[in-house]
Design a protein around this nucleic acid. Structure first.
Lengths: 188, 188
DNA sequence: ATCATTAGGAACCAAGTGGTACAAAACAAC
DNA sequence: GTTGTTTTGTACCACTTGGTTCCTAATGAT
């Protein structure tokens, strides 16, 4: 996963992968069908590990308010800007941008993971509202779409090398929109 | 540009480029230094043509209100979802995600173009406010960052294959935040 | 200890990579 | 029409690509 994450699908050569996995060609092709299937496995693994960790922040019960949970997730991204990992970017975004259009199975996987992100944002956003008992998964996703888009935009800008101030500005904008929008969401 | 746009840097082979440009290796290497320099030229061209066209929408004087101009830009992206070009995605996003981290010159170019987008969004957003005379380019950029992030997030999701409803949801969220945020911006 | 099974390693494959060298062809000037 | 120059096409380069083969080495069960 790390090799694909850093280099991208095309640029990650088989020797790169073998080195990263600590095995030789023989074992590699005994264990996996081909390069693409390893990429897919890596993407699923990313969804199960990295994305799920982010979603857990949105679903934690420690900060009761959804707003606070969303704020924490964005804060973690701002904190990331001060680490060497800042430029590693987001594997999901890379897959979405350069593999999804060319590979239906990767597209399905990417959309599934993005859907989970949207729904988690939506749950957190709606948690603070009075009439939350009506919402189903689809409604959650819809409510979470703008937040997820801001989050993904943040990832892309982080990847591109934008400043920490820019990243913080995105987070601030997303949180402000949360504070001023509750009635708009509730009235849908 | 189209070849790099569709295939990405690595996946666009020299024969692909030669075919797209209508020349052979000899002429190609007489006219350009190497593949990378052509990519950079394509990226700059994208900034000068495609991105500038989007920015012109934000700066047009036909709809007097900045809100209306921003709405038009998002509306154009929603309209795009009904065309075959929907999946072509955004060349700038692809460059930002998979080339910027590995090539400082591409990073600089990407950040410059993104900066223009941020500033244009900021100008349009601030145009509707009373105290706009104080703003300089830096303040415009700062004000435009959340909108630009939403816009870029939209591009990524469009690229990934998200539904037209999702794209519309992002646009709606960005526009709503504009309507409810004027005081917050003005008080900065 | 024996034997069946599996994993490991290296040589090998054809095809494709970006890039160069150079001769032929087109063009310009006069 | 004859030059000198530039453009174009092609053969070629060394190297890398993802993937296969096949034999040896390690492992596990009985």
């Amino acid at each position: 996963m790390k090799v694909f994450w850093e280099k991208g699908y095309e640029a990650a050569s088989l020797p790169d992968l073998l080195l990263g996995m600590g095995l030789t060609r023989g074992s590699f092709y005994k264990a996996f069908k081909d390069k693409r299937s390893v990429y897919l496995a890596a993407l699923r693994f990313y969804g199960d590990q990295v994305v799920s960790a982010a979603i857990r922040v949105l679903e934690a019960d420690k900060p009761a308010s959804g707003y606070e949970r969303i704020k924490r997730l964005f804060a973690s991204q701002i904190a990331l800007m001060r680490t060497p990992d800042a430029r590693r970017g987001c594997f999901l975004c890379k897959a979405a941008v350069d593999r999804a259009p060319h590979d239906p199975e990767i597209e399905r996987t990417v959309l599934m993971i993005i859907g989970r992100i949207e729904e988690a944002f939506g749950r957190a956003a709606i948690a603070d509202l009075p009439g939350k008992q009506l919402a189903n998964a689809r409604a959650f996703r819809k409510a979470g779409v703008p937040l997820a888009a801001a989050y993904i935009g943040l990832q892309v800008l982080r990847n591109a090398g934008s400043s920490a101030e820019t990243i913080a500005g995105i987070a601030q904008g997303a949180l402000e929109s949360l504070l001023t929008r509750p009635k708009a969401i509730a009235s849908r």
